[in-house]
Nucleic acid binder design. Structure first.
Length: 260
DNA sequence: ATGACGCCTCTTAGGCGA
């Protein structure tokens, strides 16, 4: 079961590029972020025609998450628990069942948090506390579960081409990294680092200032697996090359293969 | 660096992102 996370930066602008990538990469599941669309305007038929089931949790203009899955999506849940006042669409869950295992899938778009300090950074840290609570609950199930998406967190200096440039940024501040590390340390396996060491692995390159051409990237799209899920992982990689195509998102897909 | 780039919309300007 191949499961990918991909911040597409707008479904309207990315429909064609996303379709091309799906046709080539053939993921069983794609967790999408920043659809920037209300549910009614999401072009589900483009993906249903390719054999995907589609669930969305959208909002107008900003944010929005979706799941595309060739397997049926069961027990769909929208919104991260813990704040009934939060109207930003950043979390969606569903269960898929493989030949041997059911896997709980959580797609997330963690708040950017800039500028920091400030109310946006406070919202990011509060959201991460709610994420930690949901993560604890998933672990207590002792079943395969995956929390994947755009975390807007650079975990370590080696995850940025120019870490000094991010020193005061909400993606890299010590408090941000500590909150991420606290969640991982509950018992999750960060899929990419379980298989690849060293610098130079990125999932985002800014549109500006030739960041892609200079390979000035950061690694902020992550897949966190419960122990029962990590036991099933057979591969993990970043589909780096699609950043160089026409009309790319500023993020690229990251995927895991699970023997589920 | 008040920059760039590209997405979005109550669109041709301004908000937002990372």
């Amino acid at each position: 079961m191949k499961i990918a996370t991909f911040n597409i930066n707008g479904i309207k602008a990315r429909a064609e590029a996303l379709g091309n990538w799906l046709d080539e990469a053939q993921p069983d599941v794609a967790l999408l972020q920043e659809i920037k669309s209300v549910d009614e305007n999401f072009p589900a038929e483009l993906f249903e025609d390719r054999g995907y089931n589609v669930v969305t949790h959208g909002q107008k203009s900003f944010n929005g998450v979706a799941i595309l899955s060739k397997l049926p999506l069961e027990d769909v849940s929208r919104g991260l628990p813990g704040d009934d006042e939060d109207e930003q669409a950043r979390w969606i869950e569903a269960t898929v069942t493989g030949e041997r295992h059911a896997v709980r899938l959580c797609g997330l778009y963690l708040p950017n948090g800039n500028p920091a300090p400030g109310p946006k950074y406070d919202y990011k840290l509060a959201w991460m506390e709610r994420l930690e609570a949901r993560a604890r609950a998933l672990l207590s199930e002792e079943t395969p579960a995956l929390m994947a998406g755009d975390y807007n967190v650079i975990p370590q200096p080696e995850d940025a081409a120019r870490p000094d440039a991010w020193k005061n940024d909400a993606l890299f501040l010590p408090q941000t990294r500590a909150a991420f590390r606290r969640i991982v340390n509950l018992g999750f396996t960060e899929a990419f680092r379980a298989r690849h060491r060293g610098p130079g692995h990125y999932s985002f390159w800014d549109y500006q200032a030739g960041a892609w051409q200079k390979n000035n990237g950061i690694r902020i799209d992550h897949l966190l697996m419960t122990p029962a899920c990590a036991d099933l992982m057979t591969d993990c990689a970043i589909d780096r090359e699609i950043r160089g195509r026409d009309k790319p998102s500023d993020h690229v897909p990251v995927w895991v293969e699970l023997a589920a």
